[in-house]
Amino acid sequence: MTALRAAGILALCLSVGSLLALAAASRTGGNSVGPVSSRVRCYAGGDQVIVVASSEEIEVREAEGIRLFVGATVPQAFVAYPQPRNVTVAYPPAGPGAPPLPAPPTQRPQFSGGELMVLRADEGRAIGLPLAVLSGDPVELAQRVEELASGRSQLESPRWASGSYLTGSVGIPEAGRWYAVVVAVARADSPIPADSTVDCDVFMDLEARVYPGPSQALRSAYLAAAGALLILLDRVRSRREGWSPPS
């Protein structure tokens, strides 16, 4: 095997290897980039809890072959009802061995659905994000976000833990500044008293995925073409060397 031919085969192999590596890497799921800080509020009304969260601005830079996703996990909301009236505490418990205060009755509402949306930062700022989640009507905010969203994804519970938490991710369409907003609804077994304490949380994180596109295929094709050209040159050279002019 001549050096030219070996180099050609090498280029072909590297081209195939790179394509296979990119294809495999794009199927292995997301690679965590880091958490995204967010503001969360839960609203209790009737027998339902609405969880609304907005991320801080997310800046996505231009990078070829990479797509960023915002992932969100919404753990189960926790409702602590007010202390029942018939429970009285005769003395404040103090010191070791003192009887503990009776815990208020609690409930963990089951999620019935949720959505994760991304919208451009300028549009998000126009509706007051991220602080808008801390005040105002959650239903109205959810409607405004839905109208403006550039991308959305339904949050789902895993089968083995139906309703106990929600998770999902949505792709950020392009480079720029973005907000991610989560709206999730959980239903309680019974009406929630107005003075109850409702705890909820939303964890957001950014993940990057290899997303090969036409430019990667083109680069790989260039490499393969260079390899094929080297092999062709080698064949031409070997034919010329084998050919001798007639005497």
């Binding site: 192999c13 590297l14 290897g17 790179s18 296979l20 590596a21 990119l22 495999a24 890497a25 292995t28 690679n31 965590s32 980039v33 880091g34 996505v60 830079r61 990078a63 990479i66 960023l68 950014l206 993940e207 990057a208 995925r209 290899v210």
Partner: peptide, 18 residues
């Protein structure tokens, strides 16, 4: 190249995003 792409690209893309 396959092995390196499989095991190295993940770390590379997560850094590139930052």
């Amino acid at each position: 190249s396959i092995a390196a792409g499989l095991f190295g690209l993940g770390a590379a893309v997560s850094q590139v995003a930052l």
